[in-house]
Design a protein around this nucleic acid. Structure first.
Lengths: 162, 162
DNA sequence: GTCAGTGCAAACTTTTTGCAACTAC
DNA sequence: GTAGTTGCAAAAAGTTTGCACTGAC
């Protein structure tokens, strides 16, 4: 599915959601949805705010962004993550299931896919709970920080030997 | 291992950590560690603050709690979660690996264990990344909210029929 | 004695809320 | 016309920071 096709489809899903829940179909809401589906990867409210002001030339208040994102989450078109300080979001329609690798040192988030893992999670029997979605966060040290640490440690030892 | 035994062990681990990193061994730090290892399940900074003031009769400032928690996380004695608004923490030494089920409606967090799932995650090959720990959050609707929703929906239909 | 650590309050950041103005229906 | 939405500013909530004081080493 190409990008425009996805945008049209999510627009339709959102319209149905708004209708079903008696919400109004405002231009702000569609502009926000469109912008979000132009973003690859994660974003936070501030980034979205700037993106809309700069590129789409459509100014919406932060309050509206927060309000609309809640609707989009309920409509299953956006998912919310909470690594780092501010909440991060990402589009969820037509995206491959993926997991997150987070470096505890530099905070860098990397996505990866693993079908076995995905299958294992989805096949897990949950008692008295109807699953909607899930997030797996794997914490550790990325190779870049690992290298930096080794270098640092080496320097420290050399200093001590002096 | 009984509770006192665990407390003694983590105290020892913390002491080693503080020594190794040239940090001071203050009474505040040990009181915080002790309180955390008296708590079952999750807690946030505010809860910890109240607990220490009320039960331990040991007043520490929030700033110190934040500072100390970072040390404890680095010493692998505490892990941090970020569901809901405020950061949640839990002790991590001598705890069984578990996963989290979060109700998107009422926010209730339930823990569950599943060895197959645990094995699948731990066996996942990660490229250029040294794993330290992981969190799996499963989102959905808990049975309680599910029931409430059904009831609500039923009422709505009855209202419309009038 | 020195400097890391602490408490306090102020600052900062992110998110929520109240209210007047606006507009989709 | 009316009630749901929006923008704005203020408030709230959580966390960080600056600074003077304290106490672990």
């Amino acid at each position: 599915m190409d990008s425009q096709n996805v945008k049209d489809t999510v627009k339709q899903i959102f319209t149905e959601y708004l209708n079903a829940h008696g919400h109004r179909k405002t231009p702000e809401r569609y502009a926000i949805l469109d912008t979000i589906y132009s973003i690859d990867g994660h974003f936070d409210i501030d980034t979205l705010y700037s993106l809309m002001a700069d590129h789409e030339n459509f100014r919406v208040s932060r309050a509206t962004l927060y309000n609309t994102i809640i609707l989009l989450i309920n409509a299953r078109l956006v998912i919310k993550h909470q690594f780092g300080n501010s909440s991060q979001y990402e589009k969820s329609y037509n995206r491959d299931t993926h997991h997150h690798q987070i470096c505890t040192q530099c905070g860098k988030v990397t996505e990866f896919q693993n079908e076995d893992l995905q299958r294992a999670i989805e096949q897990t029997k949950l008692s008295r709970f109807s699953l909607s979605h899930y997030s797996l966060y794997i914490y550790g040290i990325c190779s870049k920080c690992e290298r930096a640490n080794r270098k640092k440690m080496k320097n420290n030892i050399q200093k001590k030997e002096k």
